[in-house]
């Protein structure tokens, strides 16, 4: 009897605690960045974060879509904003490139009524409309602002003591300034790592470019940039690098052996998504966090914490 009475209360409390977001996975989530998607879902429950996948989302278009007319690129990204607006929830993505493309499109459509009217003429062909004013947010920002460092620290069951982490932010998380963290020397991921009991190392290259999608067509240029970042992490004695973007992770992990060879260097640094490290500190199993998806092996580095 007592149990039955307290159940609805418990449910209501749960609903209050769980915050819901329109989750925009982006195309890497089921491909090169599959470990990000898996680990993100694994930590969602533990942190009281409900990520509802945006129904029938499409690719945001990212940098390559600039070969098309800008209006087309704006409509391609804008379709997702219109879909999320129908839901009435903030749109959250874990990809830096999606974050900037959707965020910039959102700014343009929200601040420019003329452009919005034109885009809406096109969106109407798909029975959609965007009124403007939605929030586009990055997963890292949601985690540090809506949940917070203290709350996370209180949920840590396995302190990552002694682990030396280089936090790599890349470019499009903080630039152009969409209102989150410093554009040259961001700190949010470093603070998160400290909340998990691990150490951060100085990392001058933390917000420099990894070449993003240029790696496909300009590999020499890309391997130069990738090498500078990895070398810097090595020089600062990092055990691992963490990122908040599937493109950054792909470049630093999958191209690591090529970068090493081409530049005659010697490093072996596993590259994780910040969600994987966070999940480990929350006591989630290695398997659920998909560490095996990394090309550079994480075995040695993770051994003391398993």
């Amino acid at each position: 009897m007592a149990l039955r009475r307290s159940l609805p209360k418990l449910k209501a409390w749960g609903a209050l605690k769980m915050k819901a977001y329109s989750y925009y996975p982006g195309c890497s989530d089921e491909a090169t960045g599959i470990a990000y998607g898996i680990s993100m879902r694994a930590i969602g429950d533990a942190l009281g974060m409900q990520l509802d996948e945006l129904e029938d989302w499409n690719c945001c278009g990212t940098t390559p879509y600039h070969v098309a007319e800008e209006l087309e690129a704006i409509c391609v990204a804008g379709r997702n904003l219109a879909l999320a607006e129908e839901k009435g929830q903030d749109i959250v993505t874990g990809c830096n490139a999606c974050f900037v493309t959707l965020g910039k499109t959102n700014q343009r459509l929200s601040n420019n009524p003329e452009l919005r009217a034109m885009a809406n003429e096109a969106l109407a062909e798909g029975n959609l409309k965007y009124n403007g004013g939605l929030k586009v947010r990055h997963l890292l920002e949601v985690i540090v602002n809506d949940i917070g460092y203290d709350q996370i620290a209180s949920k840590v069951t396995k302190k990552l003591e002694g682990l030396k982490v280089a936090c790599y932010y890349g470019c499009q998380l903080t630039r152009p300034n969409l209102g989150f963290d410093d554009t040259e020397n961001p700190q949010s991921m470093d603070k998160l790592v400290e909340a998990l009991g691990a150490e951060t190392v100085p990392f001058e290259m933390k917000a420099r470019c990894c070449s993003a999608s240029l790696v496909m067509s300009e590999e020499d240029l890309a391997l130069g940039l990738i090498n500078k970042i990895l070398k810097n992490a090595q020089d600062n004695n990092a055990d691992c690098i963490i990122t908040a973007c599937p493109l950054c992770q792909l470049n630093l992990d999958a191209y690591q052996s090529k970068a090493k060879k081409k530049n005659e260097e010697d490093y072996e640094i596993p590259v994780f998504f910040f969600t994987q490290l966070l999940g480990m500190a929350l006591g989630i199993s290695e398997k659920e966090l998909a560490f095996k998806k990394g090309v550079v092996s994480s075995k040695k580095v993770l051994a003391p914490y398993l």
């Binding site: 491909a31 090169t32 087309e72 062909e125 798909g126």
Partner: peptide, 25 residues
Amino acid sequence: RGRMPLKAKKIKDRDGFKAIIAKAQ
């Protein structure tokens, strides 16, 4: 490592999507 699917993903409302693009163009 399952990081490069061979099969392409497609959205459901491809007709609507293509109509939006055609109009934008």
